[in-house]
Amino acid sequence: MIDLLGYAAFFLSTALIFAIITLGLNLQWGQTGLFNVGVAGFVAIGAYTSALLTTPETAGRLGGFGLPILAGWVAAMAVTALVAGITGYVTLRLKADYLAISTFGVAVVTQLVALNARGLTGGPFGVAFIPRPFGALADRPALFNFTSCGVVLAVTVLTYLALEHLTRSPWGRVLRALREDERAAVSLGKSARSYRIQAFAVGGAVMGLAGAVQAHLIGFIAPDNYVPTLTFQVWAMLMAGGSGSNRGAVAGALVVWAVWVGAGALSAALVPQAFQARAAALQIVVIGVMLCVILLWRPQGFFGPRRRRTPGGG
């Protein structure tokens, strides 16, 4: 029984990390209408930044500074915000598509660095021995899962409250005004580009934080964690939940992750070993089709704001 609860706590922790990433994407897309196809890259940047700063010294790899976990998280947010800010700075004076293409490029290049810059990222073997909060409890798995879940839950709640506050603040109102009617907002003296860069950077920071928290939850990261499938899952979560609503983002993350895990368990139980890889591919096909179907028939998502809105951005 306690094992089952322990597993439930682990499931919830993973789902909540997705919820944090989705909250970050909601600020970028839902509130501001900025399209990010490189979510996995920003999550990876956060994860690697925190891992490099907090791990013990390792031969053959830069870093291993042994800093406290919190310092790693703050740095993860700062570095990801910087990368997102630069991406926004380069592309946000241009057409909306150029931001999308550039974020895709950021994700591709991050993946290349993670795979090939062994001296920085450990290459395909990744980074291990990332300190875990309450790591002293690791020999009691159930208790450890509960405390980890508590930590993730706390971060999620804090992120949620902070983003809700930002959304309601004058700053958030400017973002929505820009999304709804750029010309009107600009005529009131708001610099569209500057606000968008800020929103993109803050959203990126939230994704970086999620990546860092996940790295410290698992204790190990590798390039395989940050493939385009991750970006895609997060988009499915936001679209299912309804972009524009923080509550929807969290709900979408929980529901889509439950469906994902359930489908995975089902195919693991029903599909013979030899066809597992094919079943996993089919799982992604289904989510891809689902994303398209939501876009076609229910663009406001299942928990979306009641009022119909039109994402803009160029």
């Binding site: 895609f232 096909v285 876009l295």
Partner: peptide, 27 residues
């Protein structure tokens, strides 16, 4: 008339198309 939603749909379609190939022919 929402250009960027079409981009997103193409992203979803890309994921589905690619994994259909992986399903049929393995990676």
């Amino acid at each position: 008339g929402q250009a960027i939603v079409v981009v997103m749909a193409s992203f979803g379609a890309s994921m589905a198309l690619r994994n259909l190939l992986e399903f049929a022919f393995t990676s």
